[in-house]
Amino acid sequence: MNIKNGYFEKKMHEHIFKNYEAKDKSSLIPLLQDIQSIYGYLPEAALQDISDFVDMPLSRIYGVATFYNQFRLTPLGENIIRVCRGTACHVKNSSNILFAIETALNIKAGETTRDKKFTIEIVNCIGACSIAPVVTVNEDYYGRISVKDIPNILKKYSKVSKKDNLPQPEVNLA
């Protein structure tokens, strides 16, 4: 039994697969959702296991996973920065805000910093157009911000470690 070699994860995946019929292609998306609910993203090994289970080529599963916005292929950071790119925010120069955050963290939207502290996501409208441009970090809203505010906002979150923000495995391995 070699836990280092992904043994535990494989068992966990098999536990999820029990709820589905093997080689049933229609169960692909629910399976992806279940896997994502454990890890917060879709690890490559999990996609390979799903590929064997539903008997579909990995390329097709990767295609589905990249087609839907709800699936992520990289792990989430401790803090999720959502930059609104809706119409109102766009008019209020949200593209500059996004660029400033990307430059400050040295990653692109959709990616996670190497220290796993931040993830940048683009959202199409948060519904807070009156305070455009809006950026949210985790549950906190920052409205009517300018590029100048970005360093201060980021500084706030790089200090505190919010480990419990990460989704926890919900699977009972009994």
Partner: peptide, 25 residues
């Protein structure tokens, strides 16, 4: 690749302007 040869090495990924035909990852 998928229907005749049944190898399935490449497929469409992403969507819209970003979509490409490529191998997994």
């Amino acid at each position: 690749c998928h229907e005749v040869q049944k190898v399935g090495a490449i497929d469409f990924t992403k969507r819209g302007f970003l979509s490409t035909v490529t191998t997994p990852y």
